[in-house]
Amino acid sequence: MKREIEVLQCLKEKFGAEGYVRRDRRVFITVDAEKVKEAILLLKNKGYEHLSAISVTDWIKDGEFEITYHLWSYESKILVTLKTRIKRDKAIIESISDIWGGNARTHEREMHELFGVEFLGNDDLVPLFLEDWDGPPPFRKDFDWRAYVREKFYSMDNERERSYYD
């Protein structure tokens, strides 16, 4: 547990971050959106070389997106989850693709497609999974997929699909 607390302390001092140690080898840290890239660079230089994933959580009640970066260190064997919150109606954050190259670029591309978060500095935000998609970003909490499917693919006139309108 000692090394986990050390990482937490270091980020607390440098960036005024908040966080907690959940268990052995798992640290969760929250920083401000402006400082997130700096914090990631610092962690990378500390040996957190493996960017495991980038994820977005849609906290619709707070009107915010939470962006999480999961970083693993092969040396100290700790997984740091770096979290930051941005406004939902102004979902823009700096890209980290210049730090991790193709790895970060692909993760950000996915999150851009599914949540509509803009990553400044990522030149490759073209759609990844969804082809010819014209709806809103589908993983947002306010996307009503039942209504979308009904409108787009089903028809009242079709006897077998009428039940979806009840």
């Binding site: 070389e49 493996h50 960017l51 495991s52 092969y74 991790w100 190259g101 193709g102 790895n103």
Partner: peptide, 9 residues
């Protein structure tokens, strides 16, 4: 080096 950077596991 590339393997780590590209996230290979």
């Amino acid at each position: 080096r590339e393997a780590i950077k590209l996230g290979a596991t």
